[in-house]
Simulated scan of single mutants.
Amino acid sequence: MARRVFLSYQHRDQMKAKGLNLATYNKNVKLDVSMRHLLDPVNSSDPAYITRKIKEQLKGTSATIILIGKDTAKSDWVANEIEWSREKGNALVGIRIEDGAAVPEGLTESGAEILDWAKPSDVQEFAPAIERAIRGTARGANMPTNSIATCRR
């Protein structure tokens, strides 16, 4: 069963976000998730409208993946997406896409697992990390332990 996952990232990392989204269609990658995201910028400068669009994408998701690049920890929008995800009970997983990139405070506070985009062993852990994180939330507390997503698309 594919998990619905929200993808959070800082705008300068848009191409990596698109790459991760494409990986969900790769039969050789064990990442059975359905991504929700705003890969194309919202055509507005109205913060209330942008917030509504982000929250629409968060609906129905059980986890949030945060891509951690050079400027991610400085992004107010990413900080908001982490907070909104936490408020709705989403599991959080960070994926560091640049060496030495600072982890956003909200991820540190929540104890989220942080994986490394450049380590093949970590890439194989993306789906299991999502499942581990979900089991750590209130909604995942009663989930069977054998439900780790290892299906190939």
Rank of each mutant, 00 (worst) to 15 (best):
M1S: 10
A2T: 03
R3W: 05
F6S: 04
F6R: 09
L7Y: 00
Y9H: 04
R12F: 06
D13Q: 03
Q14C: 11
M15E: 15
K16Y: 06
K16E: 04
A17F: 01
K18S: 08
G19F: 07
G19V: 08
L20V: 03
N21T: 14
N21H: 14
T24Y: 09
T24V: 13
Y25T: 12
Y25K: 15
N26I: 08
K27W: 13
N28Q: 13
N28L: 13
V29K: 07
K30C: 05
L31W: 04
D32Q: 07
V33H: 00
S34F: 13
R36C: 05
D40N: 14
V42W: 11
N43P: 09
N43C: 10
D46N: 15
D46F: 07
P47A: 07
P47H: 05
A48E: 14
I50L: 12
I50F: 08
R52E: 01
R52Q: 11
I54W: 06
K55E: 04
Q57G: 07
L58M: 15
L58K: 12
K59R: 15
T61R: 14
T61G: 11
S62E: 10
S62Y: 10
A63M: 07
T64P: 01
I65S: 02
L67K: 01
D71C: 07
D71I: 09
D71H: 11
D71L: 12
D71Y: 10
K74P: 03
S75A: 03
S75M: 05
S75T: 00
W77C: 10
V78C: 04
A79P: 02
A79T: 09
N80G: 11
E83F: 11
W84L: 09
W84H: 09
S85F: 01
R86Q: 05
E87Q: 13
N90V: 03
A91H: 05
L92M: 12
V93M: 08
V93F: 08
G94L: 05
I95E: 00
I97N: 01
G100R: 15
A101F: 07
P104Y: 03
P104V: 06
E105S: 13
G106K: 07
L107K: 07
L107T: 02
T108F: 10
T108C: 10
E109G: 11
E109D: 13
S110I: 04
S110C: 10
G111R: 11
G111Y: 07
A112M: 06
E113H: 11
L115H: 02
D116G: 09
D116C: 09
D116H: 12
D116L: 09
V123Y: 07
V123A: 12
Q124K: 15
E125F: 08
E125I: 02
F126Q: 00
A127P: 00
A129N: 04
R132I: 00
A133S: 05
I134D: 02
I134C: 04
R135M: 04
R135F: 00
R135C: 01
T137C: 03
T137S: 01
T137I: 04
A138W: 09
R139T: 09
R139H: 11
R139S: 14
G140A: 06
G140K: 12
N142P: 06
N142W: 13
M143V: 03
I148S: 01
A149N: 09
A149Q: 08
T150S: 12
T150Y: 10
C151D: 12
C151G: 13
R153V: 02
